[in-house]
Deep mutational scan, measured.
Amino acid sequence: MSIQHFRVALIPFFAAFCLPVFAHPETLVKVKDAEDQLGARVGYIELDLNSGKILESFRPEERFPMMSTFKVLLCGAVLSRVDAGQEQLGRRIHYSQNDLVEYSPVTEKHLTDGMTVRELCSAAITMSDNTAANLLLTTIGGPKELTAFLHNMGDHVTRLDRWEPELNEAIPNDERDTTMPAAMATTLRKLLTGELLTLASRQQLIDWMEADKVAGPLLRSALPAGWFIADKSGAGERGSRGIIAALGPDGKPSRIVVIYTTGSQATMDERNRQIAEIGASLIKHW
């Protein structure tokens, strides 16, 4: 067993022997301040990774656009098919120029040779490549099948209805392509620590998230040296922004954090800054 596999296998073990965790309302004060600064709703939840206990939450059962955070769930569904012998990570998928959609920095470079399922998941999570996500959605049967996968996990809230990039439209009061912070946090925890996926697939999923290259201005910008984070960000229309993450000190994750916002007129930089400040408060009061 590799060191990384050992780390993920012992996530519940280490967490069980940690000192009790206590909620700190100071972080919620910052979440509410972010709402004021952005002029928009902000949803927040913080779960203990081992027990699933909610440590703090704000608007945990209000719907927010998922945006690209759905790509972690998508690759979880792909990995479940791999575990069941219905898919192979090494299978190569070929596609054409007509398949390319807006923001496809990886797939646009491989029109000639195609990409493997493993490479597509890596591109979808680490670079948020939209064509990679659409190609992977095709392998599982489309958005409705991802929703069905989530329902089978016990998540009857999260739903995907459309493809990239239309799913980022974020129309107010439109339930399409949305989740709730509580539902997303619980589902992410199941994917990373539950028995739904094999140990190898859980490790692969967290490795992809740990290698995320496009979430630097968010929670990662607030992390002290030595902290662990595996995350996936999302951005959408109407001032929408979000991030889902597993993080913790001492090089291992111990909490799940989900943050979503929508309806702001603020710039992307300002949305990023507010999420980073929430992260800084979380870490300060850990």
Rank of each mutant, 00 (worst) to 15 (best):
A200M: 05
S80Y: 09
K53Y: 04
R63W: 01
K213Y: 04
L73H: 09
A246F: 10
R189Y: 08
Y44R: 12
R220Y: 07
I243C: 13
F58W: 15
K109C: 13
M153Y: 14
M66W: 06
Q204P: 10
A185Q: 05
T158H: 09
R162H: 14
E166V: 02
L218M: 12
S80Q: 07
R273C: 02
L55P: 11
A266K: 00
L111T: 07
I54D: 04
K144C: 09
T27V: 07
E277K: 13
G251H: 01
S254K: 15
A211I: 05
R118D: 14
Q274D: 06
V214L: 01
E169R: 02
L55E: 01
D177L: 09
G234H: 02
E35D: 07
D269A: 14
A230R: 03
I140G: 14
E169K: 02
K252I: 04
H24Y: 05
I283Y: 02
G85K: 06
E61G: 06
D129T: 09
Q97D: 12
S221T: 11
R162E: 09
E26N: 03
Q204C: 08
E277W: 11
P249H: 12
K252M: 04
L191V: 02
W286T: 08
F70M: 04
A148K: 09
P165R: 04
T126K: 11
P105W: 13
T27C: 08
F64S: 12
W163E: 07
D269I: 15
N50E: 04
K53Q: 01
V257I: 03
N134T: 07
D212I: 12
N173H: 04
V106N: 10
L192M: 13
N134V: 08
T112Q: 06
T27K: 06
V258S: 05
H285F: 14
R81A: 01
R63F: 01
N130I: 01
D269H: 01
A132Q: 15
W227N: 06
V106R: 15
L197M: 00
F64W: 10
R255P: 06
K213S: 03
L196P: 08
K190T: 11
K190A: 14
A84W: 10
L74N: 08
L55A: 06
Y44M: 14
V78N: 15
L73N: 09
L218C: 00
L247A: 03
D113E: 15
P217N: 06
A124D: 01
L79K: 01
E166G: 07
Q274S: 08
G226R: 10
V72I: 12
S68H: 03
I54L: 04
D99P: 11
L160M: 15
R176Q: 09
G251T: 06
T138P: 05
D212A: 14
Y260Q: 01
G242K: 08
M184T: 04
A40T: 01
V258D: 04
T138F: 00
L219Y: 09
R92W: 12
T126N: 06
I278E: 15
R159S: 04
G263L: 03
Q88A: 11
D207I: 05
W286M: 04
T179D: 15
G39V: 10
G85P: 01
N272T: 10
K109M: 13
G279E: 10
L49C: 15
S96Y: 01
D155P: 12
T186P: 05
G226A: 02
R162I: 02
D33H: 05
W227R: 02
K232L: 11
A225D: 12
M66H: 08
R271V: 03
K213R: 05
A235N: 10
C121K: 09
A276G: 08
L167R: 07
D177H: 02
E87L: 14
A266D: 15
G279A: 12
S281N: 14
E169T: 02
H94G: 13
I206E: 08
G242E: 12
I45C: 11
P165M: 02
G90L: 06
S128W: 03
K252V: 01
M180E: 07
Q265P: 11
G85D: 05
K213P: 03
G279P: 10
R91C: 09
T107G: 01
I93R: 14
M153S: 12
R162D: 07
V82A: 13
D48C: 00
E46G: 03
M115V: 00
N272Q: 08
L191R: 07
E26R: 03
E56V: 04
G242A: 10
V117K: 07
